[in-house]
């Protein structure tokens, strides 16, 4: 009531026709989807499937690839690289700020190096990793791990820094020891921050794996993309791209699901705010 905005009329109108408006919105979105596919189809007809694979052709090849297992095999390589790198990078990154919580001087010493590592173009290290670890899975895992590490480190650090000193004092007054404090106060408080980092790092992990494969590999979706491009097989490239995008979407979704289960105690408004941002 106390604001300049509160326009009851417009608010009411929106709420009043909510069901109708939602239907119309869904209809509009469906229409846009149809238009997008039509444009894609038109482009592939104008330029030919040689340059732009048609939507139908991509769908057929995609299902073929899935049924024959070829696509699944390459997807599993990429996925494996991304997951392994993600875990190798994220676990120490999340743990480090906890271990250093009571050692602010060490954290301070590390700070400029971490900021530098965070800002440095890690993907530029790809050739180096290929040199060190060969064109196999190890070089991709290393690239993903180092990319994920810095992102998660800073989110975990933010989580530790957001710690409410009063809560710690309260727990100590009630007789909690250092371990209890870490387990019951610090960790739960930092979890949302860590998840923010994981959510940001997730697409980077898959992107990192694919990029390393693009540069030098003999399997994986990035290799499939590169192979398709070299053979002027745009349909093949599209199929691989669709697969990569699917992984990213599924990855996002699973991080969100895990987060929601772990963070049931948070007020829902908070969650909404964050996903809306």
């Amino acid at each position: 009531m106390a604001t300049l905005e509160g326009s009851p009329d417009s608010n009411g109108a929106i709420r009043g026709g909510r069901a109708g408006a939602l239907m119309r919105e869904r209809g509009d979105q469906l229409l846009v989807l149809v238009v997008l596919i039509a444009i894609w189809q038109a482009l592939s007809m104008i330029y030919g499937v040689y340059w732009i694979g048609s939507p139908w052709g991509v769908l057929v090849r995609f299902s073929e690839g899935v049924l024959k297992g070829e696509l699944l095999r390459h997807t599993s390589y990429t996925l494996w690289e991304a997951v392994a790198g993600f875990i190798i990078g994220a676990v120490p990154a999340a743990a480090l700020p906890f271990l250093l919580r009571r050692r602010p001087i060490i954290t301070a010493i590390l700070d400029p190096f971490m900021v530098g590592g965070y800002g440095a173009p890690k993907l530029a290290l790809a050739p180096l990793f290929v040199l060190w670890f060969g064109i196999g899975i190890e070089s991709k895992v290393a690239l993903v791990a180092i990319t994920v590490f810095f992102i998660v480190y800073f989110s975990a650090l933010a989580g530790i820094r957001s710690l409410d000193a009063k809560l710690v004092q309260m727990a100590q007054v009630m007789g909690a020891n250092e371990r209890d404090v870490a387990r019951h106060i610090v960790f739960p408080g930092a979890v949302p921050y860590i998840f923010t980092g994981l959510r940001i790092a997730m697409p980077y992990s898959i992107g990192g794996a694919v990029i390393a494969e693009l540069i030098s590999a003999n399997r994986g979706l990035g290799y499939l993309i590169q192979l398709g491009a070299m053979n002027f097989d745009t349909t093949g490239v599209f199929v691989a791209l669709v697969a990569v995008t699917c992984i990213v979407i599924v990855g996002n979704w699973s991080v969100n699901v895990v987060e929601r289960r772990l963070l049931r105690w948070r007020p829902p408004a908070d969650l909404k705010l964050e996903t809306g941002a």
């Binding site: 993907l123 697409p203 898959i206 992107g207 694919v210 990029i211 693009l214 979706l221 990035g222 993309i225 590169q226 398709g228 491009a229 070299m230 745009t234 490239v237 691989a240 791209l241 990569v244 995008t245 990213v248 979407i249 996002n252």
Partner: peptide, 11 residues
């Protein structure tokens, strides 16, 4: 947003 842009380079 979820499409890895680097993967588009060959295309």
């Amino acid at each position: 947003v979820g499409v890895p842009k680097y993967a588009l380079v060959p295309l």
